[in-house]
Simulated scan of single mutants.
Amino acid sequence: MDVFGEVADSYDDVRPGYPPELADAIHAYHGGRPETVVEIGAGTGKGTAVLLRLGAPVTCLEPDPRMAAVLADRHPGVTVVGETFERWRPPAGGVPLLAAALSWHWLDPATRNRRAHDALTPGGTLAVLGHCYDYADPDHARAIDAALRAIDPTATQRPLDWFRDDIAGSGLFADLKTHRTHRDLPLSTERYLRLVRTFGPYRLRPPEQRARGDAALRSLVDGLGGTVVLRLRTTLVLARRPR
């Protein structure tokens, strides 16, 4: 499903990247520089920037041509393949390192762990990372949550450890490690709204519901002084295909 293509430039501009030190954690866990890296659902390359620090050739799977165009422009040294993970065929023998940055939830939950396991070489590394968006001020968090629930009472947020639990629960991987970092990110009303407009749940809502959400959030953040401070919690989960 092409969800983000029409906002590819905004996505690249406002979506926060990942701490570069995550590359050190991946390198140490893997036991050195991998021969190659494949990234699932690379988008415009936010996670790719970390993976390139490993010093290995990177192949990025990105089925949306508009997102892929931004990715190729941002990181001209990578190989971009316009395939979904489900349609992609790994090379014979598998790949030594498979990564997914904020894309694990877009993969088929019934098959993603098995596909990842089978795409890896024995002893290969799976690296799944993503952000959880929270707010530095708990009162702001409650006010924004209430505003959004007034528009869509069905809105939910995944638990912080959901993809670790998903990978562990598959029983297919060994030696799971979790790394967490957090940082605060102040955003003006306009920049905050631009960020929200790149979120999957927002993109999947009908236009009328999006407009109501925009108006409610604009009024709320303006009333908070025109700035909201996101508390960005980043999780990296590392796992190994048993030999």
Rank of each mutant, 00 (worst) to 15 (best):
H131K: 05
D137G: 12
A99I: 06
W104L: 04
L54W: 11
V50T: 09
P90C: 08
L54Q: 12
P63R: 10
G94V: 10
P65K: 10
A110W: 02
R87M: 03
H131R: 07
P76R: 02
V50N: 00
H105R: 12
L97F: 02
T121A: 12
T79K: 12
E83R: 13
D64M: 12
P57D: 10
L120S: 02
H105V: 08
Y135M: 11
V128A: 05
A92L: 14
A56S: 14
S103N: 06
Y133Q: 06
T59L: 03
T125Y: 08
S103R: 00
Y133E: 09
F85C: 04
W88N: 08
A116E: 05
C132E: 15
L97C: 02
G124L: 09
H105L: 11
T125F: 13
A116Q: 06
R142A: 15
H131A: 07
V58I: 10
D118Q: 06
G82P: 10
G55I: 07
A110S: 14
P57G: 06
L98D: 06
A136F: 04
P96M: 03
N113A: 15
E62D: 07
L51T: 00
A119F: 05
T121W: 03
F85A: 14
H75L: 11
L51F: 04
H140W: 14
Y135Q: 07
A68S: 02
A127Y: 11
P91H: 03
D139Y: 09
R115W: 05
G55E: 05
C60L: 11
P96Q: 11
T48E: 00
G77V: 14
A100M: 02
P76N: 07
V78G: 01
V128W: 03
H105P: 08
L126P: 00
R115E: 11
V50I: 12
V58C: 00
N113Q: 09
R142L: 13
T121K: 07
H140K: 11
A68V: 06
L54V: 09
T125W: 13
E86A: 15
V50F: 04
W88D: 07
D134E: 15
R74V: 06
P90E: 00
D134W: 12
L71G: 00
G130T: 07
A100T: 00
W106L: 05
W88F: 13
G130E: 03
E86S: 15
D73N: 14
A119S: 15
G94Q: 04
R66S: 06
A119G: 08
R87V: 10
L71C: 02
W106H: 09
P76Y: 00
P65M: 04
V80T: 14
A68H: 01
N113D: 15
V80F: 01
A56D: 03
L102K: 09
V81R: 11
R89M: 11
R87P: 01
T79C: 10
M67F: 05
A116V: 13
E62A: 04
A110H: 11
C132Q: 15
R66M: 06
H117S: 09
L61S: 03
H75P: 13
H105G: 08
Y135G: 05
R114D: 11
V50H: 02
